[in-house]
Nucleic acid binder design. Structure first.
Lengths: 200, 200
DNA sequence: ACAGGAATGAGAACGTGTTCTCATTGCTCG
DNA sequence: CGAGCAATGAGAACACGTTCTCATTCCTGT
């Protein structure tokens, strides 16, 4: 019954440890020099792994950054879920969460820049990773709305907001807008989308 | 009075012609092979210009693709303005225009992919070009709303829609969604945003 | 028409992502 | 424990964006 390639075993453990070191090295390099600061040779050196090994674990630099981003966004989701948003209306809670999220991102400009650039590069080979990132973003938003399962409309709103999120990050990382615009964009979009009968 | 470097003159004309050839070669290559199909050496060869000259005209491959994109989006804007959208309500007109626009883009998958990737790469050096592209998108949308000058709210809605536009294109180009999703996303967002008292 | 200077052509050269080769190591299973 | 095989290390090699060099051509102003 050793068919599914035992998840324990010495090999698996070593591989998990390598993967971790590679991602950590990536995050460290990204925090320092953004996208261009993450050079595959450096990632290999810093994580104590051969260049070819990095590529056996991650098919490309983008994949590497996206996997790192998935961790970050999912961690963000858990952190936000742990401290539930304040606010009486769904709109307020969503705005609160979105503002906290964008603050988190704009506080680590370089690392965020690296990952956003990977997100925007749009190669089909990494579509599954992009999907997971945006699923996490959407989950953050629907989670802030209310405790019930999200309705179709909730999901539609959340999708739009996560799209605004991405575009706004791209605009910030690309130097089109300042960091505060990300939060403002999201708040404005949220208020336009979730307009219950009470005008702000 | 020959101060502003005469816009006519033989030199200026040759330069304009070179620039045109370079952009045309770019579009042709992009139509064939997407982002990776646009190789700077090929652009130079196809446009009958030296590689160094391409770089004197366009600081980078991204700049080149973005300048090409600006032309396309502005052409699209004029075409859409020439055939005003059908529909009685602002929502319907906006949806009509957005659907036509996304059809135009998804019909040229490779070329669009190349340009979207340039848009998503988010380097500050090309922020002005990104800005022009999104200004054109926004203009397309506000133009569809009504003939009057857009209100602040109109502009806010248009900005959100142009952000959805970009994200949705990124999702399509990146293989996350099918081409029809772009138009659907935009329509859904438009209906959520422009909710006059008449529910659809 | 001519001198001076800017623009271009042609191609080498460099940096970094990615691939490939081959020797070595480490795991698993009998 | 030992054979076999996958994983890894080390580094060369390749592709393409970008930069640089230098000779040649083309404008422009006189």
């Amino acid at each position: 019954m050793t068919e599914p390639a035992a998840v324990d075993g010495a090999l698996a453990k070593n591989q998990a440890a390598r993967r971790r070191r590679v991602i950590d090295a990536t995050l460290a390099l990204a925090a320092g020099g953004g996208f261009d600061g993450v050079q595959m040779r450096d990632v290999a050196t810093e994580s104590g792994v051969a260049l070819g090994t990095v590529y056996r674990y991650f098919e490309s630099k983008e994949r590497l950054l996206l996997e790192a981003n998935i961790e970050q966004v999912e961690a963000l989701r858990e952190r936000l879920a742990a401290r539930p948003p304040s606010g009486d209306t769904a709109t307020d809670r969503v705005v609160d969460v979105l503002r906290r999220a964008s603050r988190t991102q704009t506080r680590q400009p370089e690392a965020t820049a690296a990952m956003v650039r990977a997100l925007g590069s749009a190669r089909p080979e990494v579509s599954d990773a992009v999907e997971r990132v945006s699923a996490a973003m959407t989950g953050i938003i629907t989670g802030a709305m209310h405790d019930d399962d999200p309705s179709d409309r909730d999901r539609a709103v959340a999708r739009v907001l996560s799209q605004v999120w991405l575009s706004s990050l791209v605009g910030w990382v690309g130097g089109v807008d300042g960091p505060e615009v990300v939060g403002d964009d999201l708040e404005r979009a949220a208020r336009l989308l979730i307009n219950t009968s009470n005008q702000d």
